[in-house]
Design a binder for these strands. Structure first.
Lengths: 102, 102
DNA sequence: ATAATATTCTACCAAGCGGTTGAATATTAC
DNA sequence: GTAATATTCAACCGCTTGGTAGAATATTAT
């Protein structure tokens, strides 16, 4: 699950797609027109995002409307949180305080 | 840069390696012994993590000691933060409050 | 019914991935 | 020096990826 999510957002085009979807629902065509690759290329990226649960699709006639689903990103952020202590500089100060004599 | 970081942590073995490294410096061999794949397989994963800036290596004689570098994870977490509002349930309540009549 | 529109499906390509094996290199131990 | 240890490097395998092009499907417009 984290595999799919991190794998999905490891690609800059897909991160950009999520950025567009953050402004609201968009259909595949209008989304595709904003990227310098083919329609089919964008269509494949969307499928990767769907597989990761980051995008859902609402078919209405011949149009497919896409919507951002942020829940999987929350799980991804939670995993990263386990490492927050390691980049938090305040910890260095705390450590220096706790073990002053090595 | 985010490409490399997210790509690196998209693999469960590499996430596990980071987990081990969170407990302190470890040399390649002792790390490799903890995984059900070959030494060389682990060695390649380490290289991916190094390329992402998540691991640094201190060569001491014939031993290579590995250390976690969490800074790139901070950048990754920051990007995810842009989407926090979308999974934060409090927003739903706020939205309901702001536009009570659709 | 025909044509235009919106989209997927299939097939292809070159490149990369996760994994293996076998050889090479460098350091330490005897 | 020779042998053991710790590690990389190079080559390979099957599978996936990001991208393309072309054909097929479904819906709407005329």
């Amino acid at each position: 699950m984290l595999d799919q999510v991190y794998g999905a957002i490891a690609d800059p085009t897909r991160r950009a797609i999520l950025g567009v979807l953050a402004d609201g629902e968009v259909k595949v065509g209008t989304l595709a027109r904003r990227f310098p690759i083919t329609f089919n290329g964008v269509s494949k990226h969307i499928k990767v995002l769907e597989r990761a649960g980051l995008v859902t699709r609402r078919v209405r006639g011949r149009e497919h409307w896409l919507r951002l689903q942020a829940a999987p990103l929350r799980a991804a952020a939670r995993w990263l949180d386990h490492y927050r202590e390691f980049w938090d500089t305040r910890l260095d100060a705390l450590e220096a305080l706790l073990k002053p004599r090595p």
